[in-house]
């Protein structure tokens, strides 16, 4: 509760400072609109913003689900097979060396202007952190527990299912928290490159028509969505960490 109060106080202070700068400098609204003007634009365009926000939310939600499932499966496979790990890890690291944003035009070419290219873009961004965090947890089970499990005659499959995966769930939660922040970035970049819907598209459209207030309104909507997603994922992550 106290943290929430501080967050509101900090937000209020920032808005006041922003409004103050606009008043004092007299900067034109198409360069920097005042927060009041942004609020008015957000209200006036609420239906338009909501429609586009829904599209972005769908892209992010789908990417989170697909990226998490793919990342978790990869991590389990890598942890189950050291040979596969030795084979795939250099490739995974190499894919991270390629700036994923640079792939956005190709993805749009391959998957079209619809939701698919944005989902693929966001999945590519979150796949590695999820895989890496979960794999880390799977391979950090104390040796004593694994020795005991093997002395008991445990099969590798059951050891994975009953010991390694539960032990690694808090690490998966950490990966999910990162993914929740990265996924909207991927979706919006995808929308910038080629889209007819979504908050990224709306921001680009507003910017091109010098509707800076609408662009800011879209930006804040995206930020609020990301924050809400982060809070939700943190709750899930905390539940995973609570044994």
């Amino acid at each position: 509760m106290m943290r929430l109060r501080y967050a509101f106080a900090a937000a209020g202070f920032t808005l006041l400072l922003w409004q103050g700068i606009v008043w004092i400098t007299g900067v034109p609204p198409f360069i920097l609109p005042s927060p009041v003007r942004v609020g008015q634009a957000a209200y006036a365009n609420r239906v338009l913003i909501a429609e586009n926000a829904w599209v972005t939310a769908c892209e992010v939600g789908l990417a989170l689900i697909i990226g998490t499932v793919l990342g978790a499966i990869t991590a389990v496979r890598l942890a189950a097979s050291p040979r596969l790990h030795r084979l795939l890890t250099p490739m995974l690291i190499f894919t991270q060396a390629v700036p994923v944003f640079a792939l956005a035009p190709i993805l749009t070419l391959w998957f079209g202007y619809g939701i698919a290219s944005k989902v693929v873009m966001a999945v590519l961004i979150i796949y590695f952190p999820v895989t890496s965090a979960f794999y880390d947890g799977l391979t950090r089970v104390p040796a004593g527990i694994l020795d005991m499990a093997r002395t008991m005659g445990g099969t590798e499959r059951q050891i994975m299912r009953r010991i390694k995966i539960p032990h690694a769930l808090p690490s998966l939660g950490t990966g999910l928290k990162l993914a929740a922040v990265y996924a909207p970035i991927g979706a919006v970049i995808g929308e910038w490159v080629g889209a007819s819907k979504g908050l990224g598209y709306l921001m680009l459209l507003a910017n091109g028509r010098a509707k800076t207030d609408l662009m800011f309104a879209s930006l804040f909507t995206l930020a609020i969505m990301t924050l809400l997603l982060h809070v939700a994922v943190t709750k899930v992550s905390d539940r995973l960490s609570r044994y």
């Binding site: 005659g153 445990g154 050891i159 009953r162």
Partner: peptide, 8 residues
């Protein structure tokens, strides 16, 4: 009962 579970 962990041992039994690990042996399936």
């Amino acid at each position: 009962v962990l041992g039994a579970r690990l042996r399936g």
